[in-house]
Design a protein around this nucleic acid. Structure first.
Length: 577
RNA sequence: GCGCUUGUAGCUCAACUGGAUAGAGCGCCUGACUUCGGAUCAGGAGGUUCUGGGUUCGACUCCUAGCAGGCGCACCA
């Protein structure tokens, strides 16, 4: 139950009734009317801007309008205790305690589905995320986008949408050739005792390649590795397999699980790139031409040549984009267009791409291609995850592949743990850069918002332990007839915002709202808990080691929401810490 | 130079897709411990929301012109 939607509908109905009697003029569109929680200092439960919204068109002041509205609303609803006008034009409603009792009953009876936006149209999503090059282990830089994508998928799933999680494997192109050569040199190092050519900047120097090399040697005992050219295919495939094994292991340790891995090489092999380019050519989106040098570029260094171009300028891009390299191979962009055609052919309602900040400039051209292919840009939603600034010893920590000086997902999980990594990476809006202070996260774990929320759940569990119940067992209540106090209603109000939090997180693809929400809820709970020190009435368990039913279901409602939220974020909710 | 993005308390960040007197944490100051588990809580100080204009009953939010940081800008991926 979403009480804000409920009252929004009620108010709209009243407005329509009033306009029928020609007491009220309504604009065509009523979308600007909102029902929301007022700031805490206003001592009421929900609030609406309807009087301000209609003030101008009716040529009446909000206070005049509110008189009529207040009367109507009050007459229709016996659950309202108080309804008042508040400057500059809000109508504030306070409910009787019975309203909140019914609300709790609703939650307890629908513990699994509370928060789900039931009325929303259910869509079929494809979300592509991580898609890191299969050339080595994931590092911290990949983490944020990975977690962002995973949690967006979780929110959508929670909201009853269908979601397919996909990883695009860039196993085609120069990088893969260089990567394979690097593995080959490691193989030679092992077999022929030749030193690795570490001065070659095109090669991947990381030590993990030694393991790859050893694994490839072990599983290809009969192969003669003295000649690279003879074994190129085998080496390429085997190297990518090794890298993917490592990446999948990293993803698993982060709690991430993709449904599909789509290979770029396969797309090229299946002629899907030719297919999509022919299709675009027929529709006049592809031509042979030259690209101009960028404004900042020195003309002398610019080599202009004819090449196959996609007309992304038709869709607002700065310049048209190359599809084919001079050696005839497809560009990364070309096969990515094919990949997006492939996605479109699978008939999803929406495609979501999670990109790193360094790829943000790429959005325009890929969305242009989707527009050209489908006639609709809105199908593709791109979400950029900004950089993570690592801080170690109070100083920014720069990663350098050359020096082998970078922090891998393994390092992160070993030092910080999966739960804290997920919670902190998600805690901020993905649009903003994020400071990740190692020393802070590792040493002073009590300052970590994750523990603050988990502690709330653990405290609730401890109450249930004291009365020999398990938090997970269902509660049966014969009659809901309680009288919650304002302290308790403040928490219930927060809980009533949970469906809204889910709504915003899923519709705006902004899952950082969930940790923020959980923190706020936990904070209210901790405050309430401490009231019990001075006031025995506020304690959950009384002198006879019993708990009253109202408090029992109250706790159950809170823990329900915390658990749902933690599940979506993908972190544990321990009963003991 | 162009594009994208960010700018909110000393620091790190929220702010319900335009609402009320802009909120948290850290840090600083004061208080609550033989704890229904203190990994907690209560209180205090701290703001021209980068700047100038505009739209609006109402702007951190939208438009516009700047300033500052980040990222990107060839056939890399």
């Amino acid at each position: 139950m979403n009480i804000f939607d409920l009252y929004l509908e009620k108010i709209k109905k009243i407005l329509l009734d009033l306009s029928k009697d020609s007491n009220l003029v309504l604009p065509e569109n009523l979308d600007g009317i909102t029902v929301e929680t007022p700031p805490q200092k206003f001592d009421s439960d929900i609030s609406t801007n309807v009087a301000m919204f209609l003030s101008k068109i009716n040529n009446k002041s909000p206070s005049e309008l509110s008189e009529i509205l207040i009367e109507k609303i009050k007459k229709q609803d016996e659950l309202i205790e108080n309804i008042v006008f508040a400057k500059p034009g809000f109508i504030n409603i306070t409910f009787k305690p019975i309203f909140w009792t019914k609300f709790v009953e609703e939650i307890i009876n629908n513990s699994k589905t509370f928060g789900v936006n039931q009325k929303e149209k259910k869509n079929n999503y494809l979300i592509e995320f991580v898609s890191a090059n299969p050339t080595g282990p994931l590092h911290v830089g990949h983490c944020r986008g990975a977690i962002l994508g995973d949690v967006i998928a979780n929110v959508l799933l929670f909201n009853n949408h269908k979601v397919t999680k996909e990883y695009y494997v860039n196993d085609y192109g120069n990088q893969i050739i260089n990567f394979t050569k690097s593995v080959y040199f490691r193989i030679r190092e092992i077999i022929f005792k030749e030193p690795f050519p570490s001065e070659n900047d095109d090669l991947y120097p990381g030590d993990y390649l030694i393991d790859f090399a050893q694994n490839i040697i072990d599983s290809n005992k009969k192969v003669d590795f003295s000649d690279f050219e003879k074994n190129t295919d085998l080496l390429t495939t085997a190297s990518v397999v090794e890298a993917l094994k490592l990446i999948k292991k990293n993803l698993k340790s982060l709690g991430i699980n993709h449904d599909n891995f789509v290979s770029e090489k396969e797309l090229v092999k299946n002629q899907e790139v030719e297919g999509v380019i022919n299709y675009l050519q027929k529709n006049k989106f592809v031509y042979k031409g030259k690209i101009k040098a960028p404004a900042g570029e020195d003309e002398k260094n610019w080599v202009s040549r004819d090449q196959l171009l996609f007309k992304s300028t038709d869709f607002g891009d700065d310049k048209d984009r190359a599809l084919q390299k001079s050696d005839g191979a497809w560009t990364y962009f070309a096969s990515d267009v094919a990949y997006h055609k492939n996605k479109l052919d699978r008939k999803f309602d929406f495609l979501i791409n999670i990109l790193g900040a360094d790829h943000a400039g790429y959005i325009k051209r890929i969305s242009s291609s989707v527009e050209a292919l489908s006639g609709s840009k809105s199908k593709l939603l791109c979400k950029v995850s900004q950089l993570v600034k690592l801080i170690k010893d109070k100083k920014p920590f720069k990663m350098s592949k050359r020096k082998g000086d970078y922090i891998t997902v393994d390092d992160l999980i070993n030092e910080v743990g999966k739960d804290a990594t997920r919670f902190i990476m998600l805690n901020r809006s993905s649009d903003a850069e994020l400071d990740f202070d190692f020393d802070n996260v590792i040493e002073k774990s009590k300052d970590n918002p994750l523990y603050y929320v988990q502690y709330c759940y653990a405290r609730i569990s401890s109450v249930f332990r004291h009365i020999d119940q398990d938090l997970d067992t269902e509660i049966k209540v014969d009659k809901y007839d309680f009288n919650y106090t304002r302290d308790e209603i403040d928490i219930l109000k927060k809980i009533s915002e949970w469906p809204k939090c889910i709504n915003l997180s899923s519709n705006k693809l902004e899952p950082h709202r969930i940790p923020t929400y959980l923190y706020e809820l936990a904070s209210l709970f901790h405050s309430y808990w401490n009231l019990g020190k001075d006031n025995p009435e506020k304690r959950f368990i009384n002198d006879q080691k019993k708990i009253s039913t109202d408090k029992l279901v109250f706790l159950k409602a809170i823990s329900n929401v915390i658990k749902s939220g933690m599940d979506i974020v993908g972190v544990s909710a321990p009963k003991k810490m």
